[in-house]
Design a protein around this nucleic acid. Structure first.
Lengths: 176, 176
DNA sequence: CGATTTCACTTAACATGTTAATCATCTCCC
DNA sequence: GGGAGATGATTAACATGTTAAGTGAAATCG
């Protein structure tokens, strides 16, 4: 089971090092931990959403819209945590399905204002009980206190990194 | 600023409730917290990976391959936490770029065995220092102890939900 | 005013996520 | 050994993630 040592010789000396001593256990890296945890959670919700013809992101948007009377697209992107292009496509689809309504802002024709329709609201109402039940089950299994603690830590992590420089621009092509 | 009340009447009674009292603060839901936290982390790494022509998933695969001599595709999917179809596409690309090598298993021709190439290993070596530096910076900002604690909680959450039934099959179309 | 720049949003192009279907092998059992 | 079913991998089809480019409207400045 030993790695194929001394095969290519000195050429892959560092390669051998990496092979023997992985940078990090990888599956234990923070991004992987967060990814797996999120997937474990979403795996519970996706079937229920799917039964109502909604994807996770479409659900996020409709959910966000129930909390406001109307909202501009950019602000909606921030709240639902979606990038502009994704949001554009999804809004086009949701509008075609008449789950939302869109109109131009009077004061600034560049801006579009979105709101949920009665039909969209009914859909939300149909899914909400199941969704809430699942959330309650998760809370029960993991523990309400631990859940709050976890979310607090996630928030701290997020804020810790918010101010962090996004380095990696390699050479000094910072300005263009 | 009040919601358009008493417009459609009793029909959207629950809708009004939802509008006034959102099911959950939404942005504070567990899935959103996990998503934002992960994005905050990955936002630090993506530029560096991009400078080396790698996406996050391609990096995950190469990283996973450095820990083993060779691995079957299904097992690689499990380790790198990718679905089969995604992995298939990415392996095709990585193979075309000669960053990995693939061959059929002798005992079972259905199975494919993948390993990282010398060229792939060199790429890993080129990115690793930057990647490690970023990880160290994150650890420093958030705190090594808190980081370990967070990952422990994420693991517990994952295992708490592993046994949970994935309900939501609506009607009894469990069998097909 | 009018040209330039900025801004909000959309489109484009490519990579991945997600589920279903397909294809080739392999196993099992008669 | 041969056919039904199981299995590993890929392909198909559609939705989203991600970055760059495009479009129209607004703000800025000369």
């Amino acid at each position: 089971m030993a790695a194929k040592k001394s095969q290519t010789g000195s050429s892959s000396e560092a390669a051998e090092t990496a092979r023997r001593a992985p940078m990090r256990e990888f599956s234990r890296s923070l991004p992987m931990s967060l990814l797996r945890a999120r997937e474990a959670v979403m795996r519970q919700f996706r079937p229920a959403l799917r039964n109502h013809g909604l994807t996770e992101q479409q659900w996020r948007i409709l959910r966000a819209l129930t909390a406001v009377d109307a909202i501009e697209v950019t602000e909606l992107a921030r709240v639902a945590f979606l990038l502009g292009p994704s949001l554009s496509r999804i809004l086009r689809d949701l509008e075609a399905r008449q789950l939302i309504e869109r109109r131009a802002a009077k004061a600034d024709l560049r801006r579009a204002v979105v709101s949920i329709s009665a039909k969209g609201m009914k859909l939300i109402e149909a899914v909400a009980p199941t969704s809430e039940a699942i959330y309650a089950e998760i809370t029960g299994r993991f523990g309400a206190r631990k859940l709050a603690e976890l979310q607090e830590m996630l928030g701290v992590l997020e804020r810790s990194l918010a101010a962090m420089e996004v380095a990696g621009e390699e050479s000094g092509k910072i300005e263009e």
